[in-house]
Design a protein around this nucleic acid. Sequence first.
DNA 1: CAAATTATTTAGATTTGTCTAAATTAAATT
DNA 2: AATTTAATTTAGACAAATCTAAATAATTTG
Lengths: 242, 242
Amino acid sequence: MKYSSSKENYVKAIFHLQETHGLVTTNALANELQTRPASVTDMLKKLKTQKLLIYEKYKGFKLNQEGRKIALQIVRKHRLWEFFLVEKLGFGWDEVHDIAEELEHISSVALVDRLDRFLDYPKTDPHGDPIPDSQGKIITKVQVDLLQLPLKKTAKVSSIGDQSPEMLELLTHKNIALGTKLEIQKKFLFDNSLEVKVESFTRENRTPEQASNKQSKKQVAVKTVVTISEHVAKNVYVTYEE
Amino acid sequence: MKYSSSKENYVKAIFHLQETHGLVTTNALANELQTRPASVTDMLKKLKTQKLLIYEKYKGFKLNQEGRKIALQIVRKHRLWEFFLVEKLGFGWDEVHDIAEELEHISSVALVDRLDRFLDYPKTDPHGDPIPDSQGKIITKVQVDLLQLPLKKTAKVSSIGDQSPEMLELLTHKNIALGTKLEIQKKFLFDNSLEVKVESFTRENRTPEQASNKQSKKQVAVKTVVTISEHVAKNVYVTYEE
DNA sequence: CAAATTATTTAGATTTGTCTAAATTAAATT
DNA sequence: AATTTAATTTAGACAAATCTAAATAATTTG
């Protein structure tokens, strides 16, 4: 079945909210979509009629199996197009969201699958988020603190427990921020300290003139190895695949 | 300014009709868009209000300067996407129209221009139709008979004057058909006969499995040189650029 | 040229998605 | 527990794009 762009946007937004929080509320969704609660209620009724939603008046709501399937296809399209825009057309990763918002509503399934192959089946989009496969399977990310991160698993900093200025100063100095990719090289059993490879990026603004057709990475990756104490490790949360 | 997909479709259809015929009529447009004359009239009023159209009630209509500009941008997007779908994603040229109908409404100008560069500024789409440049300039095709075709100008057979079986047999034997690309190598003043280089193609259907990511041409080009008499040349019409 | 036919427009309705303002339900607070 | 506050839904309206049926204008034809 085909759904309007507007419906697809609702489905995608509900999906996003129910993944992060649990049940979704009318206000939260109105805020997410920059619209009015009354409009949300109107659309919820339609989505319920179309059996994409589990919804009881005044009680919150979430997508059912079918709704989730549709949401995952939209997410798949969005992220594949973002990958295309960055890797093939040379856009910066911070310029592609709005364009992908439009492209994700193109309906052809053959198009998505061929695009996927053309891009050589990328696993993550330019922001590091996982791309669902054609079956809607998506690598789910596990969140743990650094102490529990397996050796040699690439992970991404997702949140910081202790946000004191002292902690932030330390992290800044070691080039660790939200979104930073890192990997544990070695664990020392003596004091539970860790040797961590950190990948930081110098943000570079690309002008249309600079960017070329080739899959050029304009972000310069800087890799450093730092040592992290058990105390710090406990307060750095990361996500990794599987 | 941004226009709805529906408005863009009207503008494109009007453009198409006014290029082939002159003034456009309500019924012709309704037929082109597979809609009702009353709906056409409704939209015409809106397009007139937005100053894209020259329109007097009951008298026919056509795009003005601004409307034509918009139409050309849509045509540009449509044809660039078709080129992309065939050359990069490996679709057959007969499968891409409907997908391009959707893609042509994606609004980002930066996207179109980068796509154009990524594709290395193609001049024609997979059906041989010219692609307008970013300024809206489009190579207009001139139709003449073969006698008037300038030397060394690549042209495409567009129609045949004398369609007798004898003529068709001759053309078939020389590998000339509608759509055939050819070029005059030499003109003999003695009898106005021509030496013509003919490029014929073996059409090959690509299945999704066969097609690769590379820009592989699946059509095998066969080039031959043939001699054409004045009598035949007068009855073969071709189009060429400029 | 008047009548018949065809083309076009108008009038009024429908669908989708949105809105404001009012009413209702749920949650929080005293 | 009663009241206040916040969240949610309903009622009614609107814009865009479409439609059917009826009215009007233009064209064709006898």
